[in-house]
Amino acid sequence: MTIPNLTLNNGVEIPALGFGVYQTPPEETAAAVEAALATGYRHIDTAAVYGNERGVGDAVRRSGLSRAEVFIETKVWITDFGYEATLRAFDKSARKLGTERIDLLILHQPLPGEFDRTVQAYRALEQLYADGRVRAIGVSNFMPEHLTRLLADTEVVPTVNQIEVHPYFRQSELLAADTEHGILNQAWSPIGGVTFYRDGSHGSTLDDPVIGEIAAAHSRTPAQVMLRWHLQQGRQVIPKSVRPARIAENFDVFDFDLTAGELDAIDALDTGVRGGPEPADITREHFGIEIPES
């Protein structure tokens, strides 16, 4: 099966379904990515702060695929924000990944309290893009107010905004703001990978009865239904797993369709409760992890 592509605002194509390696231990990353590439995934999403870029690069080289066949995305962490620091961050990531050019390079978080540093980091991405060292640039976890400030002080509109989106946390306002600017919504934690509180109870999207009923109607799993929900609403998704069976299950989502009523029913599960950190709370003081050179 070939994954359909989505076209970014600069004309570059990205697979609609990617493979994430967040929280995948470095020693397990290469095997997980190799399994994903063997299954048919062609987009791998990593980040400098994950500490596993080298494993991603090793897997791509061992896969037997040409470099051009695999879309590699990584992220610059906040400790490497600033014009010159971000240029060096590219060099660190490219060296670990073993590639001269990165397909998509994005800022991992905004720094609301030091937004000038955020702007300088993005200007470095613009320079890397102009030099052809990256094919596309973008952001992650930027709220509408962050996008407004960034767009006012930079030239290149981000191609993606990678954000937390799943049935319990839809971020409708942010989805609309990205779309208005021509920015692709890229969903991390697309199936709600952490446990959430809904209506005062302790539960998970995977156990939600509404999603379970829809899954049963299509002879699919809840995870497949949630991924299909994203895809039909135009989002790019990057599920993660280290288990080959789950990796294959998440890939098998292109031969069924949810009805408009089913999409609406999943939309209605939104609780507005975020699982990840609040973007407004990100500071170098509290999240300042140093990214090693190698």
Rank of each mutant, 00 (worst) to 15 (best):
A215E: 05
N52D: 09
E262K: 02
R246C: 11
A176P: 02
A152Q: 12
T195R: 15
R220Q: 15
E73I: 02
R133L: 15
V210T: 15
G55N: 04
P4S: 11
P112H: 04
G275P: 00
R62W: 08
E249N: 11
G192P: 04
R61W: 06
E290D: 15
S93A: 15
R228D: 05
A36I: 01
A136Y: 02
A245I: 05
L97E: 07
E53L: 07
F196T: 11
L147I: 10
D178R: 06
F251E: 08
R88H: 12
D131P: 05
L6M: 09
D207E: 12
H166F: 12
W77R: 00
R101S: 12
N161Y: 08
I247C: 08
S204I: 09
A130V: 12
T29K: 01
E278L: 00
G192R: 13
L231T: 07
D80A: 03
E13M: 05
A30E: 13
Y22K: 05
L6R: 10
F19A: 06
I78E: 05
L97P: 10
H218S: 10
F196N: 14
H43T: 09
N161T: 09
I102Y: 01
R123N: 06
A265K: 02
V21A: 05
D199R: 15
R133A: 04
H181I: 01
M143W: 07
I78C: 07
I282C: 00
I78N: 01
T118M: 14
G55R: 01
F254P: 11
F142A: 04
K240R: 13
T86K: 09
I266T: 00
I191Y: 11
F196G: 07
T179Q: 08
F90H: 13
G288A: 15
D252E: 15
L8C: 11
F169K: 00
G261N: 05
S63F: 01
A48W: 02
D255K: 12
G98P: 13
D80C: 06
